[in-house]
């Protein structure tokens, strides 16, 4: 049984996703929808981190229930920079790069949930399966948002 490894890996990717979303939010403070939606979606991942830590105990793991993603001082510097650069057109390209990165991270996390759900089913671990069924849709929604926002943002950045 390597279920604990799958949980640990997922805990790591969700924790990382919190950091990705928070820092992306900070970098694009002048893009208000990106700023707020990324923060809202980071809330999902933060919740996933806590739930994985809780269920991890049943599999002998000692995982941190608090996501490490609050970047503190760095965040305010990023926000300030984003505000100052708000009148320039280069942040558009940066946004596309960030969306692409987020899409890949969220898609990867979604695959990790897939692995966990399948394994939980194989091992008949109902509680773990329930957790995966609750959380997996939210990582898919994170990836879908990144994809959808990329579609909206790219024509104006590239074709203007």
């Amino acid at each position: 049984m390597k279920l604990h490894l799958a949980i640990e890996e997922l805990h790591r990717s969700e924790d990382h996703l919190v950091t990705v979303l928070r820092s992306m939010s900070d970098r694009h403070e002048a893009d208000h929808e990106v700023f707020h939606v990324c923060r809202d979606m980071a809330g999902w991942s933060r919740q996933h981190v806590a739930e994985l830590a809780r269920i991890g105990r049943d599999f002998g793991l000692d995982l941190d229930p608090h996501a490490s993603g609050d970047p503190g001082l760095l965040a305010s510097i990023r926000q300030r920079t984003s505000d100052l650069l708000g009148r320039r057109s280069t942040p558009g390209l940066l946004l596309l790069a960030d969306l692409r990165h987020l899409y890949r991270e969220a898609a990867g996390t979604s695959l990790d949930w897939e692995i966990l759900a399948q394994s939980a089913q194989g091992a008949r671990e109902q509680e773990l399966l329930d957790l995966a069924e609750r959380c997996h849709p939210q990582s898919l929604r994170q990836a879908r948002w990144a994809n959808a926002h990329l579609k909206v943002a790219s024509p104006q950045v590239i074709a203007s």
Binding site: A30, H32, E33, G86, R87, S89, G92, V152, Q156, V157
Partner: peptide, 16 residues
Amino acid sequence: PPTHVMQQLRYMEEGS
């Protein structure tokens, strides 16, 4: 989707 006014303003802010 069509560009709503708040996003239009953002594009004006960026200069596109």
